[in-house]
């Protein structure tokens, strides 16, 4: 298929833990289509950030190891590239933005210098041209007075403006794929709404694919077209966003949606009503259940679930990892 921008399959990542190794991510895969936003969701420790960091070789090599898998971007497999080859791909073909722009920006250089450097790393242009391009990028991400802001330092900008600068840097070489890891989590809702709108607009004009890693189901509902749900290192459900939210097939996804305080409760006189919860806690990666990883907490569990881990199986346009998916 020609319109697949990035195809990940069979990704397994292990971490050193105690004397041995644990698998933080196991057999994770998805296809990211050109021009679409794919949401990668799940709660703390489910492996969503490990998945996105491994795509760009950003895991700490002292503790993390990619055991298997392939991440095809055109002709190359990102997981097989050397650090030197990766640095050529990073920024040029795949770019990434993070939750906290302050930690990714260098405090001692102006934002113009940093955007310029990102451009000059991949393109043979003069300093002057790079600066002019930085100004046009700042204006493209709707930073007011870009000619003046190009000389500003990160600490002189608000959190929302810093995230815009990060986006400008990420877009400097018009990447095919943008990985956005919790890009609006640290921002206020009115600023979040603007950043999400900006990303959608840039995506439409540049045709790039976005992998949106987030814990926020509201954000996913707003911007993603398809969603991958992870639990304890596994993909448990993969589906178009409308289908998933209308009728989750995996009991974990269903439990997650039910635990969100419902909109409009105050109008229906239903405020303070007991929220459905998922009993128990996420299993430790050191002591994963033998069968389905959600089995100990699952309201639908049956004897088979404790014995045998279900495979990810296709149900029309969606996939679910469950022996007894919800009807």
């Amino acid at each position: 298929m020609t319109d697949v921008a990035l195809s990940l399959s069979g990704l397994t990542v292990s971490f050193a833990s105690g004397g041995g190794r644990v698998r933080a991510v196991e057999d994770v895969g998805f296809e990211l289509v050109r021009g679409e936003t794919l949401g990668l969701v799940g709660e703390s420790g489910c492996g969503k950030s490990v998945t996105s960091l491994s795509l760009l070789g950003l895991l700490d090599p002292d503790v993390a190891r990619v055991e298997s898998g392939a991440a095809r971007l055109g002709e190359v497999d990102l997981l097989r590239l050397s650090e030197r080859e990766l640095s050529r791909v990073r920024g040029a073909k795949v770019a990434m933005i993070f939750q906290e722009p302050m930690t990714s920006l260098n405090p001692v250089y102006s934002v113009g210098a940093q955007i310029g450097e990102a451009i000059r790393l991949h393109r043979d242009v003069s300093r002057k041209e790079a600066r002019a391009r930085a100004i046009s990028l700042l204006s493209r991400v709707k930073i007011p007075a870009p000619e003046a802001r190009v000389d500003a330092y990160p600490h002189e900008l608000s959190g929302g403006m810093r995230q815009r600068v990060m986006i400008a840097m990420a877009l400097a070489c018009e990447p095919e794929v943008l990985i956005a890891d919790e890009p609006t989590t640290a921002l206020d809702v009115t600023i979040q709404a603007e950043i999400l709108a900006l990303l959608s607009e840039l995506q439409r004009s540049m045709g790039m694919a976005i992998l949106l890693v987030t814990h926020d189901l509201g954000v996913v509902a707003e911007v993603a077209s398809r969603v991958v749900v992870m639990y304890a290192g596994r993909v448990v459900e993969r589906a178009p966003v409308e289908a998933l939210f209308a009728r989750p097939l995996h009991p974990y996804a269903a439990g997650l949606f039910r635990s969100i305080p419902p909109i409009g409760a105050s109008q229906r006189g239903e405020a303070r009503r007991r929220l459905p919860t998922i009993e128990g806690v996420v299993p430790s990666l050191r002591e994963l259940p033998r069968g389905c990883r959600f089995e100990p907490r699952c309201p639908e569990r049956r004897p088979r679930c404790a014995e045998e881990e279900p495979p990810l199986t296709s149900q029309g346009e969606r996939d679910v990892r469950c022996h007894f998916p919800l009807a």
């Binding site: 929302g160 809702v189 009115t190 979040q192 189901l217 509201g218 954000v219 509902a221 707003e222």
Partner: peptide, 24 residues
């Protein structure tokens, strides 16, 4: 503006926002 900016976990409800200019 605050209420309309909050994302709603319902893909069918993507809606027009009361956009407010600038930052606090």
């Amino acid at each position: 503006a605050l209420l309309s900016a909050a994302p709603v976990p319902d893909p069918g409800a993507r809606r027009a926002r009361l956009a407010i200019a600038g930052e606090p």
